[in-house]
């Protein structure tokens, strides 16, 4: 019996994960191109960039023709020391309902700090920063994720981020940290293969090791994105084409499991949409190849 058959017939009868297919990050700059492009099964929107009362027309048209839309939050800071802000959670829940989303996603990151007893004013990072992989941080993250799950009307998946800095004194590998998070909260995972590649270049962490430790049963979907290397540091820019090493990590993942969805992220320096379509074709080819490889191994 092949790997695909096992998944279909289900030793996991309770698999409620949504089959998403191949999608792209919806951004206003490429809205027309996305609409004109056949074969885009679903899109992701940055949750903070849409207002539930005034959803962009192109997004509504996509929704009407059955394209699934997943809100992707960037400001909850679930890995931060504070409990998630109930107002931010309510806003995310509202967007999930307005978009009839099958799930919502956020990041394993902290985005602000200071205030309270820290002796510093409150500060916003303006971007995602890595959580130390310690027992303390994991306990806090689990509780924050559980609070978010309770506030949201649909399942939550959380994403591994790209890190430029290393915390000293870490107690767990990324794979172990995520595995325990999933075990304790039942949260789903959004695995960004570009971020695994980033952590390979910047922190010397082998993606194969991370993939081997991850609970891939909990995989909701995969992010793929481009970046660039400068002075031995990988910058996850989302403004460059997806390079081969990132597709290689995707292939490694696909050899282990068939992802329910894959999404191409592009946030800057937008090329003609035909180029993005070609990148999506490249991703589909890896998905097809990965399935075949898994079949060959297990079949």
């Amino acid at each position: 019996m092949g790997a695909t058959d096992i998944r279909a017939t289900g030793t996991r009868a309770a698999d409620t994960r949504v089959r998403l297919g191949t999608g792209i990050g919806w951004r206003p700059e490429i809205a027309d191109g996305i609409e004109a492009q056949p074969g885009i099964d679903w899109v992701e929107v940055v949750a903070e960039n849409v207002c539930p009362d005034h959803l962009p027309e192109p997004l509504l048209r996509l929704s009407e023709r059955g394209t699934k839309i997943v809100p992707h939050g960037v400001s909850l800071g679930l890995g931060g020391a504070d409990r998630p802000d109930p107002a931010k959670l309510a806003a995310l829940a509202e967007r999930a309902e307005a978009l009839q989303a099958p799930l919502v996603t956020e990041h394993i990151a902290f985005v602000r700090a200071g205030g309270g007893t820290t002796g510093r004013p409150r500060m916003e990072a303006g971007h995602l920063l890595p959580v130390p992989r310690t027992r303390d941080a994991l306990d806090v993250l689990c509780e924050n994720v559980a609070a978010a799950q309770e506030a949201l009307p649909v399942p939550l998946a959380v994403e591994n981020i790209a890190a430029l800095v290393n915390w000293p004194g870490e107690e767990m590998s990324e794979g172990r940290f995520l595995a325990e998070l999933v075990e304790r909260t039942g949260v789903q995972l959004l695995i960004d293969v570009a971020n695994l590649h980033t952590n390979h270049v910047n922190r010397g962490e082998d993606p194969a090791v991370a993939l081997g430790e991850l609970p891939l049963d909990a995989l909701a979907y995969v992010h793929v994105a481009g970046g660039f290397e400068r002075d031995g540091v990988w910058h996850d820019s989302h403004g460059h084409p997806v390079p081969q090493p990132v597709l290689d990590v995707l292939a490694q993942l696909c050899a282990r499991t068939a992802p329910p969805g894959v999404l191409l992220e592009r946030d800057e320096n937008f090329p003609p949409v035909a180029e993005l379509a070609a990148e999506l074709d490249g991703i589909r080819a890896v998905l097809a190849g990965g399935g075949a490889e898994a079949e060959a191994r297990h079949g």
């Binding site: 020391a81 902290f110 700090a113 007893t117 820290t118 500060m123 303390d136 941080a137």
Partner: peptide, 11 residues
């Protein structure tokens, strides 16, 4: 403890 560590890094 996490707040202190994250605040120092962000600062």
């Amino acid at each position: 403890r996490l707040a202190r560590a994250q605040t120092a890094l962000l600062a």
